[in-house]
């Protein structure tokens, strides 16, 4: 049973073992769960941004992050904090297409999500020491995946969007305090945490320096971001949950399914 004619773990000269892995644990569970979670989230988000309804609660100034900033004339005027410079959008284009492109780019090029979807969607590899199904592999050396190196630009743009979400939150506080404000606050804190814990942010703050001793402020910032960076995965996944929960709460509120729990009116 010699290895012959194969590639990878079946390449000539390597120990001849017929199976792709000898792992006995449930190695497939994590990529399967990741696939299910991310796929489910994408389906929910796609449906929601295409619905073009139930995104704004005028009474409390709650705007779902999936529609922020609302820059098209299709938006309800009150919901457009930054004006409506764009023409009306046809049904398939999300109102917040401008920010959604940035956010999608930020998450798609994020170092954590790359690991997640390379493993769970592309099986490269599906799990450690489990042979991948692809015959050839060039990684991020060529187009299109070389574009992953643009992560820093998406980081800058995503930070702008987080700022817009923060302004939405402040605007909602002008109408009092309710459960919706608290949900939006948790979401905004999470978004800032996710953005600030990003590996690119860590590099910008000080990771690219070789002489920390000459840049004590940047060294301190790098240290803080490094600590936060340890929770990048949790923040990446957690903010998907907070985004969906925030959107669902505002959508149900806007649809009249229930009333907001008010603390200060």
């Amino acid at each position: 049973m010699a290895s012959s004619g194969g590639t990878g773990v079946r390449a000539p000269g390597r120990a001849s073992i017929g199976v792709r892995t000898l792992r006995t644990d449930r190695w497939w569970a994590a990529p399967l769960a990741t696939f299910g979670f991310l796929f489910g989230w994408v389906v929910y988000a796609t449906v929601r941004v295409c619905l073009h309804s139930d995104y704004w609660v005028a009474k409390y100034h709650y705007l779902t992050p999936f529609y922020s900033p609302c820059l098209t004339k299709s938006c309800t005027p009150d919901s457009a904090l930054f004006g409506r410079p764009l023409p009306r959008f046809p049904i398939i284009i999300p109102f917040a297409i401008v920010s959604l492109v940035f956010l999608l780019g930020f998450r798609m090029t994020c170092y954590y999500y790359r690991k997640a979807y390379y493993r769970s969607f592309w099986a490269a590899p599906p799990a450690c020491a489990v042979a991948e199904p692809h015959r050839r592999y060039s990684g991020e050396t060529r187009f299109p995946l070389v574009i992953q190196n643009s992560h820093r630009y998406f980081f800058y743009l995503a930070a702008l969007v987080a700022l817009v979400n923060t302004i939405d939150l402040i605007d909602s506080f002008t109408q009092g305090l309710g459960l919706g404000n608290i949900i939006m606050l948790i979401n905004v804190v999470g978004l800032w945490g996710y953005s600030a814990s990003c590996h690119t942010c860590r590099s910008i703050m000080g990771g690219r320096l070789n002489h920390f001793s000459e840049h004590p402020v940047r060294y301190r910032l790098w240290g803080w971001v490094s600590k936060l960076n340890g929770y990048h995965m949790q923040l990446a996944l957690g903010t998907l949950v907070t985004l969906a929960v925030t959107d669902a709460y505002i959508a149900l509120l806007a649809a009249g399914a229930f009333s907001d729990l008010r603390i200060i009116s």
């Binding site: 790359r114 390379y118 490269a124 590899p125 450690c128 060039s138 991020e140 060529r142």
Partner: peptide
């Protein structure tokens, strides 16, 4: 040295 081949799936860290 082929850094671009690395797709950051973190198996090196795990083991």
């Amino acid at each position: 040295h082929g850094l671009g081949y690395c797709n950051i799936t973190k198996c090196c860290t795990e083991v």
